[in-house]
């Protein structure tokens, strides 16, 4: 019942993923692979340290698993799942300059209380990605071995985990005070990102064990929080929207430039 409900809920996504999977399997032709290894199960690590541009480095790596399948000598398809528990820090919040604007008791707009967010909070981000990889056969690559370039389309869910440490320094007609808001029912923010990347996979001997590295540039294409692409201060009517906005900015900055590493186990 739950499964049916889940499928109903995520109808479009399910249909799309299923169709893609079927078409990928159908496309799979006889191809040599690397010594017969046409598939690979990988463990990946993505250090998201490019967040330094947004006020401070974030050294929490995203870890994940991936399954790559070579359909032709030049092409492989990769399905990945990654997860990170990350933190938006004080430096990040300062950089974003997000402001809470809430009406005071007088009821008029002009006398709204304004408060800048301070502190830090945690969030979790899980992303499912699908990526075609185009191998550089002119450099001797045979999928899944060798140099490649490709696109990663990922669909992620981000959720604020713990907001206890966030306070707002409110300005109430010249009087400052700290206010604290908590929310126990955080919703998942969906983020769809696209990334262009290049990388290389090398194999060790004929064991099927491989390692790869990849560099990519990307950005969220769509997300369902209220995020602005410019870095000017923004005003939010509620604490929930403000934190979700900060969270998505953090994810976006982390994906501007990304380096990924992984080790794989080949399957024939």
């Amino acid at each position: 019942m739950k499964l049916i409900a889940f499928i109903k809920k995520t109808k479009k996504t399910t249909l799309l993923s299923f169709s893609l999977a079927v078409s990928v399997v159908a496309l799979a032709q006889n191809n040599p692979g690397y010594l017969g290894y046409k598939k690979s199960v990988d463990l990946t690590v993505t250090p998201m340290f490019f967040n330094f541009i947004a006020g401070g480095p974030s050294m929490k790596p995203a870890v994940g698993v991936a399954y790559e399948m070579a359909t032709k000598s030049k092409l492989s398809i990769r399905f990945g799942l990654s997860h990170v528990n990350n933190s938006v820090t004080q430096q990040n919040l300062d950089y974003y300059g997000l402001t809470l604007s809430i009406p005071n008791n007088s009821g008029s707009f002009s006398s709204n209380d304004y408060g800048n967010a301070y502190g830090n909070f945690n969030y979790s981000y899980t992303a499912f990605s699908i990526a075609p990889r185009f191998f550089k056969t002119h450099k001797g690559a045979v999928a899944p071995y060798g140099g490649y370039w490709g696109f990663d389309l990922s669909l992620g869910n981000a959720k604020v985990a713990n907001d206890d440490n966030v306070v707002y320094k409110m300005n109430d007609n010249g009087t400052t005070s700290e206010r604290n808001f908590t929310n126990d029912a955080w919703k998942k923010v969906k983020v769809v990102s696209l990334q262009f990347n290049v990388g290389k996979r090398r194999y060790f001997g004929s064991s099927g064990i491989s390692a790869f590295y990849q560099m990519g540039v990307g950005y969220p294409l769509w997300q369902n929080s209220s995020m602005y692409l410019t870095n000017t201060a923004t005003y939010f009517a509620n604490h929930q929207d403000l934190l979700e906005n900060a969270m998505v900015r953090h994810i976006a900055n982390g994906s501007i430039m990304e380096i990924k590493f992984g080790v794989g186990y080949g399957i024939k």
Binding site: P32, Y34, G36, H138, V142, Y145
Partner: peptide, 26 residues
């Protein structure tokens, strides 16, 4: 007949030889 602008490495040779054998087989 193939040209690669690539360094001669062990796994490159493995991949190319195996690809050739695979294509010959079929």
């Amino acid at each position: 007949r193939k040209k690669f602008s690539s360094r001669l490495q062990g796994d490159l040779l493995n991949a190319q030889i195996y690809e050739t054998l695979y294509n010959v087989k079929y």
